[in-house]
Nucleic acid binder design. Sequence first.
DNA 1: AGTATTATTGGCGAAATGGCCAAGCATGTC
DNA 2: GACATGCTTGGCCATTTCGCCAATAATACT
Lengths: 118, 118
Amino acid sequence: MNEADARRLERRASLLKTLAHPSRLLIVEMLEERPRCVTELTEAIGADITTVSKHLAVLKRAGFVRDRKRGTHSDYELLCGCISHFVDCVEKGMDACSSQAARVDAGEERQGAGTGSG
Amino acid sequence: MNEADARRLERRASLLKTLAHPSRLLIVEMLEERPRCVTELTEAIGADITTVSKHLAVLKRAGFVRDRKRGTHSDYELLCGCISHFVDCVEKGMDACSSQAARVDAGEERQGAGTGSG
DNA sequence: AGTATTATTGGCGAAATGGCCAAGCATGTC
DNA sequence: GACATGCTTGGCCATTTCGCCAATAATACT
């Protein structure tokens, strides 16, 4: 494997890792509705505010969100409005493939991944 | 947050976590071409075969792949042919949003996530 | 049976992650 | 200035992840 490929895979893995936490997924979903301050997100998540703040820092460093200061508040805003949609796709795809796998197990052959981006 | 939501987020995070490793992403990409045995994947990854075997076990447990025994070989096969496509989307979306973020920084408002599932 | 090949599992150490507490910083209010 | 509010950072600990080594299992070949 060449180095460019390695970097590409590292980057992708890093993006996925950023999203791979329940609290961060919830944050993303909530920010898809509208920007929110840390306190609001903290209430929804039910964790310590310092924990949520760190989750937000992770999302920010990865480029998923940005923050705008408003007085003592930090309003966090999603920079890419379609993230949950992608996660949706993965999940739906997996579900579809579960039944597909069952069919394959029964002896049929896979035709072509029909569970695409719809 | 209710318990059903919590479970849903847990499941999604778990799926993403499974994919969030460079070696596992490479495995997925290679298996999109055709099934491969562990040795073949190991050579491409350049890690110890025991490490690769464990990565495959992770993917298998999550339902992304299955293995068929062929003599002393284990051929791994992708159960969902469209995974890389989703990752592609996230990455492209992020790239698109980077420039979008730049515009937002410059004072414009976000219209609606135009970087969708294309 | 004996040996080689292929893959999996257990174990250990190094590193990363996640969570809360304590402390600190920035802004607003009195 | 003093105090309150909202948020962030540093620190510590528990847990998880990752990678290699050693050992084991399963199959093929002689």
